[in-house]
Design a protein around this nucleic acid. Sequence first.
DNA 1: ACAATAACTAACAAAATTGTTAGTCTTTAA
DNA 2: TTAAAGACTAACAATTTTGTTAGTTATTGT
Lengths: 125, 125
Amino acid sequence: MRKEQSTNFANEQFLFQVCELNSAIAMISGRWKSQIVYSISQGNNRFHLLQQELPNISETVLARQLKELETHAILIKQEIPNSVPLGIQYVLTNKGLDLVPILESLCDWGKMYAEGKEISSYSIS
Amino acid sequence: MRKEQSTNFANEQFLFQVCELNSAIAMISGRWKSQIVYSISQGNNRFHLLQQELPNISETVLARQLKELETHAILIKQEIPNSVPLGIQYVLTNKGLDLVPILESLCDWGKMYAEGKEISSYSIS
DNA sequence: ACAATAACTAACAAAATTGTTAGTCTTTAA
DNA sequence: TTAAAGACTAACAATTTTGTTAGTTATTGT
């Protein structure tokens, strides 16, 4: 439960209004969120497929992360037509699809500067 | 204090090893971090300048965020040569500099899909 | 000598996130 | 008819993050 009278909440709101960067970061910074978005973009678009990809996530936590991504309109939940039993799939919205290449650059950035791979040099200005 | 025997810690480690994306996200997802990186890239490279930019941050919290960014080699702390009194500036490393355009795309993405800025003003249950 | 500024730190408290336990509902296969 | 799979939810506990309080050190302006 968010406490809307807290300093924490006020500071979050302040940053949201300073720059959309901060709301963007807030939307993708949950423990499993960006990995879920990336996995869905790779075709793992069902609850049980995501569970297979992320064997350490509990059902409760996965459901919660998916709901938050849905709240931020990064994905939508869809019934799979003509499926018996009725299946549910998670589909990235345009917003979610546009996020994927950014996650890929973050991934590349992470790889480039991963422990031990860092070529060197601090910039001195 | 991190509890290295916790599920939370184990899950974080798991994600780090799934993809560098997750360590990248972890490095930039503190409350003020990406805004600090962006502010420094705009020239606000001193403690008191950052405080002016972010009037709601406390000294303790700012110092902590800066130290974490330093730990992740996104910036370094430097004494300003020939300054009296000795001043300290924060300088982005190559890693930090390479992060800036990614933060800019995140910002653009946030702006493009901004709809009702109440993103976290309701609780997700 | 004394207050002010810059740049911090440790210890603690408040709040938020993440994980666990124990359920639900619907459909299908044995 | 019973069990299993898929897709969840509420309530609670553990852990982590964020914010607060009360200091420190060094230097400078008055």
